[in-house]
Amino acid sequence: MSASASPSPPVAPPATWTPRIVAFFCNWCTYTAADLAGVSRLKYAANVRVIRLMCSGRVDPQFIVDALARGADGVLIGGCHPGDCHYVEGNYKMLRRFQLLRRLLQDLGIAPERVRLEWISAAEGERVKAVINEMTAQLKALGPLGLPEKFESWDEEIIALARRAAEAAPADGDAPASAQPEEVHV
């Protein structure tokens, strides 16, 4: 599929581009491990933004697709090792969702490496560092996912339409088409 087919193809990432990772860490293991990484002064890539949840079982797949749609280049989910969940089996529930979600994302053309599930216990500060760095490198190799930019490029069609509509009926009181259609929806 040629790039020229798109209204405005995403621009090649600048040399300074770094991937943006949204991470959902469970309170008991992975968040604590990230704290440990801090206490141990380990150094890792600064492009990860951690959101604390009580359990990886709380990670709603909606959070993941929402993060990707809002411009995350990757989503990292961190939970306790199998058998170690503070809530018995929340991590298994996430593992099951993750398996199908990854397939679904792949069907939608999103590389499976962009969403990653890792078991990191409270003691594995080193692992936090390793996983974040590794994922950053992988995402760098993949390049930006750029969903917001893509949406924007599609929206050019609609913005142009709205402009034409406004010209046709400048006095019309009703709102023209929105440039952010998804915000209109309920």
Binding site: D66, G109, L142, P144, E182
Partner: peptide
């Protein structure tokens, strides 16, 4: 199966173009 009617209004809205990524 899950987006039979809702793909166009899903969060990911449509297939991302990997050829440009």
């Amino acid at each position: 199966t899950f987006y039979r009617y809702g793909l166009a209004s899903s969060r990911l809205r449509r297939r991302a173009d990997l050829t440009n990524v």
